[in-house]
């Protein structure tokens, strides 16, 4: 499993790892969408986003927060992302998914707490992400 959920006293802790930055971003989005428990998926949708950040960790958290606010305000669940560009400090991407009736889990924010996206000695990129629920 490219993402796993771990115990946290108040909220949800997710660990994600991947061979490439793209894999980590893609799997982190998939993990967040799974956590949100979308209800009654309907029509296909896409959303274009462009972001910049000081480093890869901030970019990942900002990416997930951007996807989250689109999920909540447009009632859409994104199961895939295609990157036109992805570097450690910027991305241009298209989110793809479906419109939904709502969500079973109330994710309020994606936090920077414990987040540190870096390459492990294995060569894999990995980080922890805490969701405020």
């Amino acid at each position: 499993m490219p993402y796993t959920f771990k115990a946290h006293v108040a909220d949800v802790r997710m660990q994600v790892s991947g061979r490439t930055l793209r894999a980590v971003f893609k799997d982190a989005l998939a993990g967040m969408t799974a956590l949100a428990k979308p209800r009654s998926p309907g029509a296909r949708v896409t959303r274009d986003i462009a972001l910049s950040a000081p480093d890869a960790t901030a970019l990942l958290i900002d990416f997930l927060n951007e996807a989250l606010v689109l999920m909540l305000t447009r009632r859409e669940a994104y199961s895939a992302v295609v990157f036109e560009h992805l570097g450690e400090r910027g991305l241009v991407a298209r989110l793809a998914g479906k419109s939904v009736e709502g969500f079973g889990e109330d994710i309020k924010a994606v936090t920077y707490h414990e987040a540190a996206l870096a390459r492990a000695p294995s060569g894999f990129w990995q980080t922890t992400i805490i969701f405020d629920v």
Binding site: A53, P54, T57, A58, D62, N65, V69, L72, K108, A109, V110, T111, Y112, H113, A115, D132
Partner: peptide
């Protein structure tokens, strides 16, 4: 959700601004 988004927006803005003010922290939150 409004309050949560305000916090998210401004934490993000401050993460970017801190180097300008020479502030270094053990935790980005």
């Amino acid at each position: 959700g409004l309050g949560h988004q305000v916090a998210t927006d401004h934490i993000r803005a401050m993460v970017r601004a801190m180097p300008k003010y020479h502030i270094t922290l053990p935790d980005r939150e």
